[in-house]
Write a protein that binds this DNA or RNA. Sequence first.
DNA 1: CCAAAAGTGTTAGGAGTACACCCATGT
DNA 2: ACATGGGTGTACTCCTAACACTTTTGG
Lengths: 227, 227
Amino acid sequence: MNNKFPNITVDAIVFSYFNEKIHVLLIKRNFDPFKDNYALPGAFIKDNESADDAVYRMLKDETGLNLEYLEQLYTFTKPDRDPRQRIISIAYYGLINATNQVLKTSQHATEVSWVEIKEAFKRNLAFDHKEIMLYALQRLRNKLQYEPIGFDLLPEYFTIGELYNLYCAVLDKGLDRRNFTRKILSFELLKETSFKTGGHVGRKAKIYEFDKINYDRLKKVGFNFEI
Amino acid sequence: MNNKFPNITVDAIVFSYFNEKIHVLLIKRNFDPFKDNYALPGAFIKDNESADDAVYRMLKDETGLNLEYLEQLYTFTKPDRDPRQRIISIAYYGLINATNQVLKTSQHATEVSWVEIKEAFKRNLAFDHKEIMLYALQRLRNKLQYEPIGFDLLPEYFTIGELYNLYCAVLDKGLDRRNFTRKILSFELLKETSFKTGGHVGRKAKIYEFDKINYDRLKKVGFNFEI
DNA sequence: CCAAAAGTGTTAGGAGTACACCCATGT
DNA sequence: ACATGGGTGTACTCCTAACACTTTTGG
């Protein structure tokens, strides 16, 4: 298999949002070291693929998931971070709209699951994966506030209320809903659709779509998204 | 020498500030590939040293410099970024107060020099080092505005005017000096010393010192440095 | 006395924040 | 009718940004 990089891996922390909570993808380890602990999905980098490509391939193979967003996080290099042999890990974090994807298992990852983020930190995590997860969560929190990445955790069509709940869940604090709504709408990056929610009690909500094309255009002109 | 990682390097982009301009450390290459081009200082990672340690060691060995500040930037992994063989590079950026350090050459780096940043971008740069430099400059500009790292480019004792000029140089734009001064002083993180400048025309300036201990304390309580 | 750099206040406009009620709908 | 979630306006405060003259010093 891979020969050039027998000691460099990519590890990915994949965030999803459902049931009004943030979740991360964890794999239960069936072998030592750290048997029965949980670990982030990861793989060795193969010849002729970039680290980004390796993450996409690995997630596809091991879990069947296709990310909406992927970003390199940090490279972890402590000589003793793996007890067997020295391994350098290039860590990534990714975002996914979990509602229309099916989680598969594979030969390597027989037990893969979405774990609510607070629960995940309580689990026994292999290697330095707790540290990586913490780093990723901080990056997600920061980035959510000055780049429109929250939309990558939601379906294509969503309500302001869903977006609001997502922000509260990630930042783990309450926000003022009126101020939030005003701010988000002031960017004029949400396209109002003709749909409305239904099928549940309460007033029907307007359904929006994020205008990515317009955002990319504005960004070039120096526009700043900031919640 | 190193056996575990024959294809992982660290590259460092070191910034310094003097003559009212930002400079970066470049090495002129004496060998192919990219003979006579300029490159960032770099080295292979040795067994039993972290990437951070490798950067400190490499800079000490090749240039004799001791950094005030070092931060991991990004890991570059494109399979063809080195024409000879596949190499992954963990890039760092560092800050240094160049005024009291002497630049040495070494066997590997016979021509090492500080190059003014705009001039540096005009040079022929080896590998993907232009891309790395651009990435580093953007990070420096961002970080300067919400963390007090500018002080690491200045001597221990400095005037508000020097700090102001540094900010203008890094951000490459004019700022309002009165607003800048008010903002900086409002943090109460500059300790006024009993010294004053002298030896040149113009009014003598107060000399300050950055109160790092107090900053670290405030940061824990949730203080936010932001220019 | 002149050139150079330091130092210093005020104001107007915009952004952020805090706050509470009515509306539409399904059960 | 009532419970649930959606939608909206105002006032106050604080921060930002714009702006120019006086002071001190060395030459």
